[in-house]
């Protein structure tokens, strides 16, 4: 450590800046591995934030909860009904007990958001669309299903073929418990092959139509056929 000398400032001192630069880059790159875990425990602190801010910080297990019309809809088991109508032979409503009386399906799938985050190995339980539709009878003219959320005006649709994917379901359990309010209680659409915006939460009405139509985000420029790895600019 030389004493301050009357020399140009670049002639003395040590290039600690280069080490700092490499250190920051190294820590940053390594965070690709531990960043997910770190944000998980940081999220406990974020629950104290106002809900508008919470949507931009990661949730408890890597989820980010978006809302287009806060607050989240509330689920009242005594009054909740799921309406299934449109191009069906027997339009009807389901209580949660009636929905759960249909054949139950279980799956563990990864959830991918179009903005780049993913949650691996989410366990879902619910009803396959083949079973749900069998309970109402599909008319020959039907080609698509529209899902309306209790969080208006959120809607989206799938073709019947997309809805019959082996891993698509109307889920009422997530990670071995009832779906929580923020994840769409009591029932939500799960389409693992597509980005999360197709997974309508707080589903309140299912309408069979001739053709699929643009959902909430699709009206805002997102792809209707939102396959992970093959849509939205890819």
């Amino acid at each position: 450590m030389s004493a301050p000398l009357p020399t140009p400032d670049d002639a003395e001192g040590r290039p600690v800046g280069r080490r700092a630069f490499l250190g920051i880059v190294g820590v940053g790159v390594s965070s690709l591995l531990w960043g997910g875990v770190a944000t998980r425990w940081l999220s406990d602190a974020s629950s104290a934030l106002p809900s508008s801010l919470q949507s931009v910080v990661p949730g408890g297990t890597g989820w980010r909860i978006y809302s287009v019309n806060p607050p989240f809809p509330t689920y009242d088991p005594t009054t909740w009904r799921l309406t299934v109508d449109g191009l069906v032979e027997r339009p009807r409503t389901f209580t949660m007990a009636q929905l759960q009386a249909l054949p139950r399906a279980d799956q563990t799938t990864d959830f991918h958001c179009v903005t780049g985050w993913s949650v691996p190995d989410v366990h879902w339980a619910g009803v396959r669309f083949a079973d749900l539709l069998a309970a109402v009878g599909v008319s020959p003219a039907a080609g698509a299903i529209e899902f309306a959320s209790a969080e208006e005006p959120y809607v989206d649709s799938l073709t019947l073929e997309q809805a019959r994917a082996p891993d698509a379901m109307l889920a009422y359990e997530m990670d071995h418990g009832p779906i929580s309010r923020e994840h769409g209680a009591p029932a939500r659409l799960v389409v693992p092959q597509m980005y999360g915006y197709k997974g309508v939460k707080w589903v309140s009405r299912i309408t069979l139509t001739a053709q699929a139509s643009d959902g909430y985000w699709e009206q805002r420029g997102y792809d209707r056929d939102a396959y992970v790895g093959g849509s939205n600019g890819v």
Binding site: L32, L33, G35, A38, P58, S118
Partner: peptide, 11 residues
């Protein structure tokens, strides 16, 4: 999706 590392978005 193999490139979707848990820390990418946080970083």
């Amino acid at each position: 999706t193999a490139f979707r590392l848990p820390g990418t978005i946080p970083l």
